[in-house]
Write a protein that binds this DNA or RNA. Structure first.
Lengths: 352, 352
DNA sequence: CTGAAAGCGCTTACAG
DNA sequence: CTGAAAGCGCTTACAG
């Protein structure tokens, strides 16, 4: 009588499997509950159409029952892609960018993306540093402000291979995605408005001197040259940070040194608001003695004394359209246009 | 003659190892270059003191030479902790919170943490949603505004086990970490200032009506009751979002319905600025006929006509101290105090 | 349309 | 003070 060979015995003291489980519900649990393999569950969750509808339904049911939440870290590690979108803006004290971020968030969040906000303080070096930091997080996409950055930043973006949309300015360069409006044209438009009011000595006051401000300056120059009224001495440019207080200070300075001006175009509404307050203090009548115009139509401009004439810029629309373009790119689709140029409105109020 | 049994031949066509390598420099590469094991390299990088100084030096050298950058996703997956800190604030259009975020970022970024900004729009439901989303990212810590949230949010925070610091308000409840100042006392202090100016009919105008605003209201009431001058009809409370325009509108309404007031305390500077502009339009002389005071000392308040009396609140200090407290907690250290109450300043300008 | 195996790049838990 | 093994929770790349 022969005995079957003893089955290879498992080691008597097999150490208990070392688990680090966090008690978390995983995709495995979902797959088991749905009676499919983890890969199928994964595909069903990501909406890949190759999964049979019935299995998708079973997976969704299991997800709901178990309260499963995917782990972004695991997903990012396995796929080299996260659900975060890095958004770089110059400065939050300019409420323009707060509005922009608001629109971006409202568009991306419902689509399942988190917004990683980075503030560059208008410093290309700081932007580069933020970019390096954020890129290690393998964001799904990038939203940046304008085109002015270090060569290294440009290369980091290109090398990342990530979809990237540039906001607030546009270019026709091929392969560059952007949503914005013409800062130059808008600057010319508000200058033209002052000219149409019969103003001849129109000053331009600017701070920060970032690229978009300089584009507005160009628009201003173009309009005045066309009218044969350009005079470089009418420009007052300060590299300091834009603020209400600085606007007041610059108007003081302007009136002391350029006595014959009859209008001022401030490159941003905070400066213009400060200028309006300073004019009041100095007893300068607006618009009788001096027309005043701003740019961006920020909060409070309609409440000034008198209400401020300005350019209403489409930052909400830029944020929304830019985020939607990025969404398309992240899904591998091709947006209808790589460059979207939006409109703006000259808002005429009592200050001009 | 016997032949040794043929060794189990490896399958003739062993498939080449399937690699997904991204070409990325990994910790393995660093370890190999430094001649240590990956674990030792990992420990050296994380500054765990158990590694011999010489090995640390070799690892650092290898890191520099190879340009190694740790992968946050892998780190998060393995350790259940990321280097991101979620910060939840109510609203960026209130520049108070922009300042707060600025201070937080300046403190956390150099320490190696990224700030995940979430805007709740003063909506506890929205905060809860953000919290759920951010917690899946396994942040290293949490920074939240105040104590007013849904029960579910509270449980999410507690269940996460993450270090959490509450900003802008304080409590003495044990085990609750917070950095703020007494909104109530500050509200009383500015009211006392108006009383000291001889004002008897001091109105209180507020919007948004979030918890901190209501605490200021309580301070106002306390001060007036103490002076025997409290009158509920002097309060004008609006649930709408705070803004310059709303401040102007509320002052209009106030003057129409409470004709005998001699001072107004606005719960936030944007309202007060609007109120000041409206007073101008109506020909009401400030401070002769009406003293005006605000709260927070926001940008532009010192430029108003007349400059606005207000309370300068320590939001930068709150952000910095809060972030430092969180840093300590994330390192497993115990902060010297769980509740830090900072000071504020009544800034007397010409409007009162 | 579905799945078994391997791998993403780290750190934890043991062991010495 | 140092390391070999296993695992974190997913997705990719093959294969059928």
């Amino acid at each position: 009588m022969s005995f079957p060979a003893a089955p290879p015995s498992s080691p008597p003291d097999a150490p208990a499997r070392r688990r680090r489980s966090s008690g978390r519900v995983t995709l495995q649990d979902v797959a088991a509950a749905a009676g499919v393999s983890p890969i199928t569950a994964s595909r069903a969750l990501r909406g890949l159409s190759s999964v049979a509808p019935e299995l998708v339904a079973r997976v969704n049911e299991a997800v709901a029952q178990l309260g499963y939440v995917p782990d972004p870290a695991a997903r990012a590690l396995a796929s080299s892609r996260s659900t975060q979108v890095a958004v770089l803006v110059p400065m939050l004290s300019n409420t323009l960018f707060v509005d922009l971020l608001e629109a971006v968030h409202r568009t991306l969040f419902p689509a399942g993306y988190q917004t990683l906000i980075g503030v560059t303080h208008y410093d290309p070096q700081e932007e580069e540093q933020l970019l390096r930091s954020y890129l290690t997080h393998r964001p799904a996409g990038l939203l940046v402000t304008g085109f002015d950055r270090t060569e290294a930043s440009r290369q980091l973006i290109a090398a990342s291979g990530l979809p990237c949309v540039h906001l607030m300015e546009t270019t026709d360069a091929p392969g560059v995605y952007c949503v914005g409006f013409s800062q130059n044209e808008a600057g010319a438009a508000i200058t033209d408005h002052l000219l149409a009011r019969g103003r001849k000595r129109i000053a331009f006051v600017a701070a920060q001197l970032d690229p978009r401000t300089l584009q507005r300056a160009e628009g201003y120059r173009r309009a005045l040259r066309t009218a044969g009224l350009y005079d470089a001495r009418l420009e007052l440019l300060s590299p300091e940070r834009s603020s209400i207080a600085l606007g007041a200070q610059l108007l003081d300075e302007l009136l002391k040194t350029r006595k014959d001006i009859d209008a001022v175009f401030f490159c941003n509404d905070d400066l213009a608001q400060g200028g309006l307050l300073a004019a009041h203090r100095l007893g300068v009548k607006v618009p009788e003695q001096l027309s005043v115009a701003g740019f961006n139509d920020l909060a409070g401009s309609d409440q000034m004394l008198p209400p401020l004439t300005t350019v209403h810029t489409p930052r909400f629309e830029v944020g929304e359209a830019g985020a939607n373009m990025l969404l398309k790119l992240m899904r591998g689709e091709t947006p209808p246009a790589s460059s979207v140029r939006l409109g703006y409105d000259v808002v005429v109020r009592a200050s001009s």
